[in-house]
């Protein structure tokens, strides 16, 4: 398969058999994606709600426990995600203009950001915490006499639960972006227009929004 990076080799106006025209197809996809994002909001809603309930209950402990996280690392990750969100928006912009090279570059940058996010999270947060025994479960160790071990463990459960769920979404995003980039690069017939990019973009922006709320709640507020 010859790969040309200069122009989008797309068939014009491919409409699936259940649709009447392109506009209907596009709008249907956008609504479907948003309906799915509603479910995603509710997914994370549970994690946020648990956090709010327990923080309400154990406010002073939670304030103390937030010191366990470094706002600098969280801040860098926030900025990385904002950048990646921007580059996805840009990718959609270029795909709409059928500029293949730029689209691929933007998507590649996004993927790089997502990867960086995960690497930073692993290297500077998860692994050190794991080594200290600061993870929920049988191996949990705790040596701060001012905070009961069980509440620390509860807090770590929330932290790992929420950021883990978010990290899983990032991971899924990386996989999907890679597949999309490959398909765009080889002019796969399934990529008939910019909609796949836009759909994936919507997903990625949502992942970004989750982090926008997660960051101040876990890293910043109690200072």
């Amino acid at each position: 398969m010859a790969i040309s990076l200069n122009k989008m080799n797309q068939p014009q106006d491919v409409v699936y058999e259940q649709f009447e025209d392109l506009a209907q197809q596009q709008e249907t996809y956008v609504i479907g994606m948003w309906a799915f994002l509603v479910t995603e909001v509710m997914f994370f809603g549970v994690m946020f709600m648990s956090y709010v309930v327990y923080r309400w209950k154990y406010q002073p402990y939670f304030y103390a426990l937030h010191q366990e996280l470094d706002w600098r690392i969280g801040g860098i990750n926030t900025f990385i995600l904002l950048l990646s969100s921007f580059s996805v928006a840009l990718a959609v912009h270029f795909h709409q203009k059928k500029k293949k090279m730029q689209t691929l570059a933007c998507l590649g940058f996004t993927n790089l950001c997502a990867l960086a996010f995960l690497v930073i999270k692993m290297l500077f947060e998860y692994i050190p915490k794991w080594n200290h025994g600061h993870y929920p479960g049988p191996g949990f160790t705790w040596d701060n006499p001012n905070i009961p071990g069980n509440i620390a463990q509860l807090w770590y459960s929330l932290y790992f639960g929420t950021t883990g769920l978010h990290g899983l979404h990032v991971l899924i995003g990386i996989i999907l972006f890679s597949v999309l980039m490959f398909m765009i690069a080889v002019d796969h017939p399934a990529i008939t227009d910019y909609l796949p990019t836009e759909m994936l973009g919507l997903y990625w922006h949502f992942v970004d929004i989750v982090w926008i709320f997660l960051y101040p709640l876990y890293y910043l507020m109690p200072k």
């Binding site: 209950k57 154990y58 406010q59 002073p60 402990y61 103390a64 001012n146 905070i147 009961p148 069980n150 509440i151």
Partner: peptide
């Protein structure tokens, strides 16, 4: 008794 820090 179990978690004194909560309410000082």
């Amino acid at each position: 008794l179990l978690a004194p820090e909560g309410k000082i």
